[in-house]
Nucleic acid binder design. Structure first.
Length: 346
DNA sequence: GAGACGTGGTA
DNA sequence: TTACCAAGTCT
């Protein structure tokens, strides 16, 4: 009779997924690569991360290379991945590791936790995957697998502590890194949120939710609050030479450090065009663009009405003028790409 | 501790 | 179309 850990590791060795950041069996892990992949994978799917991971490793092969880059360059490479604080912290962390740790990531969960952008999950992931230490990273996958395996009735997020403790009891002394990745792979491919593939699960026999309940009913969660909708007018300002006005957002907060087209304040209340125009960066003859741009963030919906303004010369204004074909050279979040597409479509 | 913080895929 | 969901962290 093998332990649960052994059953899962057998499955992992047999069905191991080939991922860009995953080393071959026996191959020594590169902490820089493990760290890079774990930061990118926070709240983000494997499919989305793959191309970004390869691009970052090619552009910045070592932590020193990344530390020497400009933040704008890093944000530009990160554009589209979302949660831009991750990119800002990635850059900061590379500089701390380079300057304060001689270019090497500290080899303990506790000290990894002190680095920017590294929380409990990522510290445990790097400790176990990169350094072979016994640690138990607990992400959404692990919470789901464990909640079903033990049929935990407590709701998330209250159940977090209990689920983490249960996950720890499963973690083997050896191959903790492989075990962690196996748990996450199990959650990503078999023990999925909807329509779990229990028939091919290596843990089907001991799963309490499968024996006594409905696995996909777990983990139990608190009801979510509805998202409010915010609205604003966006100013698409085109100069005679065909360039448009772009400006940088504040370094912190939503889309921090990314570029944007100017807009009125995003408000939950209804805004008139006349009031919005008082926030325009300059005076122009405005023409409302047909239709609206919709975008949803984590905590609110956004609806933008685009006002096209044409200016002739080079008015004094805060921001930079960028030709349409050069927009790709700037760190534009997906929302602003949507806006650009909408604005230039007839 | 609860809310801020992106985006794309899926049902 | 809307809502949910994904390898979380920071304040």
């Amino acid at each position: 009779m093998s332990t649960r850990a052994e059953q899962l590791l057998d499955w992992y060795d047999r069905d191991r997924r080939d991922l860009p950041w995953r080393m071959a069996p026996g191959e020594k892990a590169d902490p820089y690569k493990v760290w890079m992949s774990e930061i990118m994978l926070q709240q983000t799917t494997v499919v989305t991360v793959k191309s970004y991971y390869k691009a970052f490793l090619k552009k910045w092969p070592s932590v020193q290379d990344l530390a020497g880059a400009d933040l704008d360059e890093v944000l530009h490479a990160w554009q589209g991945l979302g949660y831009y604080a991750r990119a800002r912290n990635l850059h900061k962390c590379a500089q701390v590791v380079t300057r304060d740790h001689n270019g090497r990531f500290p080899e303990s969960e506790k000290r990894l936790l002190e680095l920017p952008g590294i929380g409990p999950y990522t510290a445990a992931a790097i400790a176990s995957i990169a350094f072979g230490l016994k640690a138990t990273p607990v992400d959404g996958n692990v919470e789901r697998v464990v909640s079903r395996l033990f049929m935990v009735e407590e709701t998330l997020p209250k159940a977090k502590k209990q689920l983490a403790e249960l996950a720890q009891t499963l973690t083997p002394t050896t191959r903790a890194g492989d075990f962690a990745q196996a748990m996450m792979d199990l959650g990503a491919t078999i023990c999925t949120p909807k329509k779990a593939a229990c028939g091919i699960c290596p843990w089907m026999k001991g799963c309490v939710a499968r024996l006594e309940g409905e696995p996909t009913d777990y983990p139990k969660k608190e009801a979510k609050k509805p998202k409010p909708t915010r609205k604003a007018y966006l100013f698409w300002i085109a100069r005679q030479d065909g360039s448009v006005l772009l400006r940088k957002r504040p370094e912190k907060g939503l889309l921090g450090g990314m570029m944007e087209f100017p807009s009125s304040t995003w408000r939950q209340e209804e805004v008139s065009q006349a009031n919005a125009l008082r926030e325009a960066p300059l005076d122009a003859l405005w023409k409302k663009k047909e239709g609206i741009v919709k975008h949803t963030f984590t905590h609110f919906h956004l609806e933008l009405t685009v006002l096209v303004g044409r200016v002739s010369r080079n008015p004094p204004v805060n921001g930079i003028w960028v030709k349409l074909e050069d927009l790709k050279d700037h760190a534009l979040p997906t929302l602003m790409k949507k806006v650009a597409k909408h604005a230039i479509t007839h």
